[in-house]
């Protein structure tokens, strides 16, 4: 029997029995994002010759947090709510050679971890942040989140949501991230391309992936994927006219000094002579 090509990066068996199938509901976007990420990591491993041991996956709490917790055959950490980026900062301080991928949800990044998120972007630490934005709190029962669109119906907004949604891409760009992009789960090739670009980029790469929640939105996943294709318009083609559609595409791709490199310059000032600081 032939197996899925990306199963080579997952742990199918653990010490306490089988770990698969994935915990996510049928048709969930989290599994798809994991699939796309593994394709991107596979490409980086093959083309750049980076060993598997140099990748580090970190996640917070929520449905997105379960991606790293049991299945990945890489170094991974499942951390506290909203603080995945704080753990990533520490990991990069300890070993700047790591290629860090952070999985967060919209509740993780936009609400409780908002401050960690903007300061990670401000420092421009060398992480690739994948934000799975499904517009609600999926794991706790479909409550409305800071990213819920106006007019959406959730369990805590039964007469439709009246609060404006957070644009996380604009926030990341303004805070100073090197690379900012937004795609949906219905754009697999673009997501993979963006993740590869983000992994090769020195500095913060923020990739927001609009994801579906078929259980709480009560619509089949296939219909939601079609809606994503219909209701989004590429940033490069849209200009000012969006017709109420969501903008997708690469919003920002600049070169800025990375955090570890900036501190390395200070360290190098004191290491001009071979004797080091004590000389």
């Amino acid at each position: 029997m032939k197996k899925h090509p990306m199963l080579k990066y997952l742990k199918e068996e653990g010490p306490l029995g089988p770990r698969m199938p994935l915990i996510f509901c049928p048709g969930c976007g989290s599994g798809q994002v994991l699939n796309y990420t593994l394709y991107a990591v596979d490409r980086v491993i093959e083309e750049d010759g980076i060993s598997k041991e140099r990748f580090l996956f970190i996640s917070g709490i929520g449905c997105s947090g379960r991606i790293t917790s049991h299945y990945l055959n890489f170094d991974s950490a499942w951390t506290i709510h909203g603080r995945a980026l704080a753990v990533a900062t520490g990991a990069l301080l300890a070993n700047p050679q790591f290629r860090v991928i952070v999985f967060t949800g919209d509740g993780d990044t936009g609400s409780i971890g908002g401050n960690h998120f903007i300061h990670a972007c401000r420092r421009n630490i060398d992480v690739t942040i994948l934000c799975l934005n499904n517009g609600l709190y999926g794991m706790t029962g479909g409550q409305h989140a800071p990213t819920t669109p106006i007019g959406a119906i959730t369990t805590t907004t039964p007469y439709s949501n009246r609060e404006g949604a957070f644009d996380l891409c604009k926030l990341a760009e303004t805070a100073g991230a090197s690379y900012v992009a937004r795609w949906t789960t219905a754009h697999p090739r673009q997501v993979i391309k963006s993740i590869v670009k983000g992994l090769r980029k020195k500095g913060t790469a923020f990739i927001e992936i609009l994801s579906q929640c078929p259980v709480h939105e009560k619509i089949p996943a296939t219909t939601l994927l079609k809606q994503f294709r219909k209701n989004t318009v590429p940033f490069s083609k849209a200009g000012e006219l969006t017709d109420g559609k969501t903008l997708i595409g690469e919003f920002c791709d600049v070169e800025r000094r990375e955090w570890n490199e900036a501190y390395q310059e200070i360290i190098d000032q004191f290491l001009i002579h071979d004797g080091g600081i004590d000389e």
């Binding site: 899925h4 090509p5 698969m20 699939n35 394709y39 697999p188």
Partner: peptide, 29 residues
């Protein structure tokens, strides 16, 4: 669950989009 099955595999070009978009790593061509 209702699983997918082959309807006409003569038409399949092995483009791999089903493998790419599978959320559960369950399908292979």
């Amino acid at each position: 669950y209702i699983l997918p099955e082959e309807s006409d595999m003569k038409r399949c070009t092995a483009c791999g989009i089903c493998e790419l978009m599978c959320p559960d790593f369950a399908i292979a061509i």
